[in-house]
C-alpha cells in the first residue's frame, strides 16, 4: 500500500481575462490546472516534481497540503484525505513555501519557534529534543536570538525549514525552497534535506526549477506539463532519453589541421580550436574520434554532455510545453 496515493486529480480555475478596449463584458476563461494526475509515493521517498511555470505543480502541492479542494479525483495521504479534517491532517505534514514567510518578522526566531510549539501542541521535552537536533543540523545556533528581519535570505530559509519541521511531520512539501539562495546556502539546504530524509524517513516532495536540486537529491522525478503527468521514473533514465547531443572542444598541436566530419556534425571555430556538436546515434563516438585524430596531433580535447538545464529545456520543447 503506497503512502501517498493520488488518482485522477483535477482542478479548474476560472480566470477573468483582461478586457479588450471598448468591450463592456469581461471575458471569463477556464484554465484546467490539473487534468487527471495520478501517482503513488512510498514512505520515505524523496521525490522531485518539475515542470515549466503554470504546469500545475503548486496546485498539486496545495491540494496535497489541504489548502485547496480539487474538483475531481482522489488523494489519500497516510490514510487521510487532505482536504477533509484539515486540522488533524496538517499536524502530520510540514510545508515550506519558498516565496512566503511563515515566521514572525520582528521577533527572534526562537520566539517564533516556541509559538509554533504551542500551535502544534508539541510536548515540551519532544520540542527541546527536536529543536536542539534541528539547530545542530541547520546550524542555527548563533542566530536563534536574532529577529528574522535581520537574517540573510539563506539563514531565513533555514529558519523557515526548522519551523516547518519542529512538529516532526511525516511528509514535507517544499515549494521552490532554493529560490534566490546563493550557492553555499543551496548546498547546505540540500545536505540537510538528505539528512532529514535518511534520519527520520520523512517523505519529501520537492518542487523546484533548479535542476541541480533534483539531480543532487532525488532519484525519482515526476514531470508535469499542462496539468498532466508526462514522466514518472528515474532521473537517470529521463536524462538518458533526452541527453542526445555531445559537445567536443578540441585544439591541435599545429596550425592548419581541420578535421573532416560529415554534415550531421556541427563544427564551428572556437578560439584557436574547434567546437563540434554531434549526436552519438547518428555518428558513433568512435568514428568521430578517429576522424579527429586523422586531422593532426591533438593537444587538448574535452567531451561534454549537455548541461542539465538545457536538457530540460529541450525536453519541455519536445513535449510541446
Amino acid at each position: 500500500m503506497s503512502y501517498i496515493h493520488v488518482q485522477n486529480l483535477s482542478k479548474r480555475f476560472t480566470v477573468r481575462k483582461k478586457r479588450e478596449k471598448g468591450s463592456l463584458l469581461r471575458e471569463k476563461e477556464e484554465v484546467q490546472a490539473l487534468r487527471g494526475v495520478s501517482f503513488d509515493i512510498g514512505q520515505g521517498e524523496l521525490i522531485g516534481y518539475i515542470g515549466p511555470n503554470g504546469a500545475g505543480k503548486s496546485t498539486t502541492v496545495k491540494i496535497l497540503s489541504g489548502i485547496m479542494t480539487p474538483d475531481g479525483g482522489e488523494a489519500v495521504v497516510g490514510g487521510q484525505v487532505p482536504w477533509r479534517e484539515r486540522k488533524t491532517y496538517v499536524r502530520r505534514i510540514g510545508v515550506v513555501f519558498g516565496q512566503r514567510m511563515q515566521l514572525w518578522w520582528d521577533v527572534p526566531i526562537l520566539d517564533s519557534f516556541s509559538l509554533l510549539r504551542d500551535i502544534y501542541r508539541v510536548p515540551e521535552e519532544a520540542y527541546q529534543a527536536r529543536l536542539s537536533e534541528l539547530t545542530e543540523a541547520l546550524s542555527l545556533k548563533d542566530i536563534l536570538r536574532t529577529p528574522l528581519r535581520q537574517l540573510s535570505l539563506g539563514q531565513r530559509m533555514r529558519a523557515e525549514l526548522c519551523g516547518s519541521l519542529l512538529h516532526r511531520p511525516e511528509i514535507l512539501f517544499l515549494d521552490e525552497p532554493t529560490i534566490g539562495l546563493d550557492a553555499v546556502s543551496k548546498l547546505a539546504l540540500r545536505d540537510f534535506l538528505r539528512w532529514e530524509n535518511r534520519e527520520h524517513r520523512t517523505t519529501i516532495l520537492l518542487t523546484t526549477h533548479d535542476m541541480e536540486d533534483i539531480s543532487a537529491l532525488c532519484s525519482r522525478v515526476m514531470v508535469l506539463g499542462h496539468g498532466s503527468k508526462l514522466y514518472d521514473g528515474e532521473l537517470q533514465d529521463l536524462l538518458r532519453r533526452y541527453d542526445r547531443t555531445r559537445t567536443v572542444d578540441i585544439r591541435y598541436g599545429r596550425e592548419g589541421c581541420v578535421p573532416a566530419v560529415p554534415p550531421s556534425v556541427v563544427m564551428e571555430k572556437n578560439g584557436d580550436g574547434f567546437r563540434l556538436t554531434y549526436r552519438p546515434e547518428s555518428y558513433p563516438t568512435a568514428d568521430l574520434l578517429s576522424a579527429l585524430q586523422q586531422a593532426g596531433p591533438i593537444r587538448e580535447m574535452t567531451v561534454q554532455s549537455q548541461n542539465i538545464d538545457h536538457l530540460i529545456a529541450d525536453m519541455y520543447r519536445e513535449m510541446d510545453l
Binding site: R86, V90, R121
Partner: peptide, 17 residues
C-alpha cells in the same frame, strides 16, 4: 496575496489564526 496559505497548513482554526 495568498499569505493565508501559511495559516491553512497549521492545525488551528483559520479565524483564530
Amino acid at each position: 496575496s495568498g499569505q493565508l496559505d501559511t495559516l491553512l497548513v497549521r492545525p488551528r482554526g483559520i479565524l483564530t489564526q
